[in-house]
């Protein structure tokens, strides 16, 4: 029983990481109906930027954290301006290919700039563990859980309660109509990319003590976040968290109770089942046009 609980807790921690990356997908999808395949790589970049500020420049952890997140916001805006904006409104497939290409580019550039060794950022809280009875949870994993929950709550309220959030939803619904209503569509899209890259930056910094910073870390985690986003229903912010948690727990359990190999495939099997049985996911709303 203790084994089970321990696996459950570490599954939840892993799930929060997936949820955090899936949140990035969801934000961009919610506002522009584009899937950013480079989301995991943006997260990786965030880790490297934070490493530069904290370890190389020698700034205080929290200051470095903040600067890294702001830098990632700028990166997101730059990407939107020069890569995404020129092809927004063209077939979805081309935009997705561009983000895949962008992922390649970021991955290799990061490898060239920062090398291919595993880098580590020391967080002030990365040593201790939280003990509840016999359960053990490291503080750095706890930080991921706490931050994910807070971020998701804040962004959920932002999208559903604020004017800007409503403008973003309107943009995704119908860009032309949003223009007519006086919404500055270009600025809205740019802002969404900035927010999404900032979320990726937060994820990258928080993950640095757990998975190390490496140029390939983004690809592996980014691809695992797809099942999370799909399970939650692409376009639903709380769905990203719930989907991430389910995928994280299933993956950890499969690694513990099932033979070797199931761990890596289990998320994708779930993904295919969801797509077959309920493509709109747990929280999504997917309308159908009848002919």
């Amino acid at each position: 029983m203790l084994d089970f609980l321990q696996q459950l807790v570490s599954g939840l921690a892993l799930g929060c990481i997936y949820g955090l990356i899936a949140l990035g997908f969801v934000l961009i999808y919610k506002a522009t109906e584009v899937i950013n395949f480079a989301q995991g790589d943006l997260m990786m970049l965030g880790g490297f930027v934070a490493y530069t500020y904290i370890t190389i420049v020698g700034l205080n952890y929290w200051l470095g954290f903040l600067l890294a997140v702001l830098t990632m916001g700028l990166v997101g805006m730059t990407i939107e301006r020069f890569v995404v904006r020129p092809i927004l409104g063209f077939p979805l497939f081309s935009i997705i290919m561009v983000t895949i290409g962008l992922g390649f580019l970021l991955r290799s550039l990061a490898g060239m700039i920062w090398g291919t060794d595993d880098l580590k950022i020391e967080a002030p809280f990365s040593q201790g563990v939280l003990k509840i009875g016999d359960l053990v949870l490291a503080y750095d994993k706890l930080s991921v859980i706490v931050v994910t929950v807070i971020l998701i709550a804040v962004l959920y309220l932002f999208f559903n309660r604020t004017r800007l959030g409503t403008a973003m939803r309107a943009t995704s619904e119908n860009m032309l109509a949003a223009y007519y209503m006086g919404i500055p569509v270009k600025r809205v899209v740019s802002l969404v990319w900035a927010i999404s890259a900032m979320v990726a930056g937060v994820a990258g910094v928080l993950l640095a003590p757990i998975t190390f910073v490496h140029s390939n870390v983004g690809l592996a985690l980014g691809l695992k976040a797809f099942p999370a986003a799909v399970l939650g229903g692409f376009g639903s912010i709380p769905g990203a968290l719930v989907g991430g948690l389910i995928i994280g727990v299933v993956e950890t359990m499969a690694g513990f109770y099932l033979p070797q190999g199931w761990k890596d495939v289990a998320p994708y099997i779930i993904l295919l089942l969801v797509l077959l049985l309920r493509p709109e996911g747990l929280f999504g709303a997917l309308g159908r046009k009848k002919v």
Binding site: E33, S172, N174, M175, G287
Partner: peptide, 8 residues
């Protein structure tokens, strides 16, 4: 212009 796929 981008239109939602969710409503199609």
């Amino acid at each position: 212009y981008v239109k939602s796929e969710r409503n199609r």
